[in-house]
């Protein structure tokens, strides 16, 4: 028996990244890597710097120091050294961002189909019939009734809006997806379905995901690896079940032991 290929290609790296709003507020000296095909969870309590880190990694906020490196298929890009045009194009074409509140990620004034089609249109798709077909296909994939393609997102429930946002983000098959508490505002019953759907999509599309969540149960089900944040720093990193079952750092132990497990 041969060695399996153990080292997957690196997709995104943070090198000594810092962004502070005040003492211990923000992110400090962050080093991490995301490998292709992997879901990396960022966990920690509110105010630990999870969302700031997500913004720094996803090109939305320039760090005070350090580099964010993206390994594209054909080039290695220093996210904040390339021009804004290139960075925004990257976000629009190769990356995706799923907001906690679907209303932040959707255009509420236009139909579900237009929401799903927008990124395709931004890429130059100019065939209405094909846009519509893609919209219906994706609605089915995220378990929405394709008959409702012309309905406004406002007429959808919270869970349906979140699935619509995911369809809208994934329609262009992004290389890398950032998710900020994707199941955050949802009922427990809706969460489970969404989690299953996300797992399936991650596997089928070979997505690489950076997932911010304060919910360790969500992290266990979705993430392959975890980093634990506290006061803007990564205090521990490792395999998801290792962090949750054998946490080493005092804070990770506290975090894990504070969770109610049914």
């Amino acid at each position: 028996m041969k060695h399996p290929q153990l080292e997957p290609p690196t997709l995104l790296e943070a090198r000594d990244v810092s962004r502070l709003y005040g003492p211990d507020k923000g992110c400090q000296e962050i080093d991490l890597a995301l490998y292709r095909g992997e879901v990396l969870g960022i966990v920690g309590e509110s105010g630990s710097g999870k969302s700031t880190l997500l913004r720094l990694l996803s090109g939305l906020e320039r760090p005070d120091g350090g580099q964010v490196i993206y390994h594209a298929h054909d080039a290695t890009l220093d996210l904040y050294a390339i021009g804004e045009a290139r960075r925004r194009a990257l976000l629009r074409m190769e990356w995706g961002l799923v907001h906690q509140n679907p209303r932040d990620g959707l255009r509420l004034g236009v139909s579900a189909g237009a929401n799903i089609g927008e990124r395709l249109m931004a890429l130059g798709q100019r065939h209405y019939g094909q846009l519509r077909a893609a919209g219906q296909d994706w609605m089915a994939r995220v378990e929405l009734d394709a008959e409702r393609i012309d309905d406004a997102p406002n007429t959808f429930s919270g869970g349906m809006q979140q699935r619509l946002q995911i369809a809208r983000t994934l329609v262009t098959r992004p290389q890398l997806v950032f998710m900020d508490e994707p199941t955050g505002g949802l009922d427990v019953s809706v969460q489970a379905r969404l989690l299953d759907m996300l797992r399936t999509l991650v596997r089928e599309l070979g997505l690489s995901v950076i997932l911010v969540t304060h919910d360790l149960a969500v992290a266990r089900l979705l993430a392959h690896r975890l980093v634990v944040m506290r006061r803007g720093r990564i205090v521990e990193a490792g395999l998801t079940d290792q962090i949750l079952d054998d946490p080493q750092h005092a804070y990770s132990q506290l975090l894990v032991s504070s969770v109610l497990t049914p």
Partner: peptide, 25 residues
Amino acid sequence: AYAWHALRRDVIGYVSQFLRCVPRV
């Protein structure tokens, strides 16, 4: 940590005492 992904997928399997999986699958 990252090396375990492929190792668990291809080399080491595990049958635990309890089933832990996504609800509703």
